[in-house]
Amino acid sequence: MKNLSILLPLLAISLLPACNNTAKNTAALPIKIQNNGVNIAYTDTGKSDTTLLFVHGWCINKSYFTDQSTYFGKRYRVVTIDLPGYGQSGKNRASWTVNDFGKDVAAVVTQLNLKNVILIGHSMAGAIIVQAKIDVPGKVIGLVGIDNFKDYNAAQDTAKPDPEFAKVITMLKKNFKTVATGFFNQYLFYKTTDTLVRKRILNDVTHADSAIAIASMEDNSFKTGPKLKAANMKLHLVNSDYFPNDTTGFIKAGIPYQLLVIHATGHFPMVEKPKEFNVLLQKAIDDIGKH
């Protein structure tokens, strides 16, 4: 009994660090984000009252914002995500519309309890962040598009389906890798686009789930005119000029915008010229902060 009375306090003391470590480890575990049972992979960097949430474009993933996470994570909270169906996120659902993806982004904002969120969407994610802003009212303070909305025309929102677009979808369904690769080589790369960057992008495109990729492109809710109005927020754009940027549609529709142009890149300025891109993105963030 005497030995036991001595050992018990010692045993209790010896267990304290283990218990404390367990508590610390549990607290450090990242939050698992899901939307309707589908896992959403993400990174969460930096600390700030303002959050930059990056959403990737067609057939790529969150790793395309690694430079931005490093650069902006020193001043802001930076979250990057893999949209469901892409990257490390789940694929266990059947619908891949802009409305679906908007709810995915909204789920990230809600479940991470993000505040003062600036949504930054590349390519097809331009429409997605507009939808997400509508889905989480009061949380989003800014919208930034990356190489999208280059020739917005409100008339397109009521136009009949484009037969040429329908042909492209049919071709993709027949031979996804060949058609997608040809499209990227012809339209989305610039003469200065680095060879390694091209290889990286084409590798991600050709290894994407073709059914999900085609469904993502086929969705008609890319027609965003009414949603831009409903978002009731200035649209900031960091766009390359490899194709002209026509802003007359914004002016006619009364949609406020800021266009920041990055020269001599293709469709992926955040990886083609990350330093110049980051400077322009900071200008957009600064402008958002004025309002």
Results as ranks from 00 to 15, higher is better:
114 L>W: 14
104 D>T: 00
134 I>H: 10
216 S>N: 11
221 S>L: 11
21 N>P: 00
161 P>H: 07
244 P>G: 07
181 T>R: 15
78 V>F: 10
195 T>Q: 07
227 K>E: 01
181 T>Y: 10
151 D>G: 14
189 F>C: 11
277 F>V: 04
239 N>V: 02
260 L>H: 13
159 A>D: 11
270 M>H: 15
111 Q>T: 00
154 A>C: 02
118 I>A: 11
90 G>N: 04
44 D>Y: 09
178 T>Y: 06
94 A>W: 02
243 F>V: 14
116 N>C: 08
111 Q>Y: 02
23 A>V: 15
94 A>C: 00
271 V>A: 07
62 K>S: 14
103 K>Y: 01
220 N>K: 13
32 K>N: 12
33 I>A: 09
291 H>F: 09
88 Q>T: 01
74 K>G: 03
22 T>A: 11
62 K>G: 06
228 L>H: 10
161 P>L: 12
200 R>N: 12
160 K>H: 12
168 V>S: 03
84 P>V: 08
131 Q>I: 03
101 F>G: 06
15 L>A: 15
44 D>C: 10
226 P>E: 11
126 G>S: 06
131 Q>F: 10
184 F>S: 11
275 K>R: 13
284 A>V: 08
203 N>T: 11
130 V>T: 13
180 A>S: 15
11 L>F: 08
50 T>E: 06
176 F>R: 11
47 K>D: 06
8 L>G: 09
31 I>M: 04
128 I>M: 02
143 L>A: 09
219 D>Q: 08
130 V>S: 04
180 A>Q: 15
102 G>I: 01
124 M>I: 10
50 T>F: 02
216 S>L: 13
112 L>K: 10
21 N>L: 11
62 K>H: 13
218 E>N: 13
231 A>E: 13
30 P>H: 12
280 L>H: 09
94 A>F: 01
16 L>V: 09
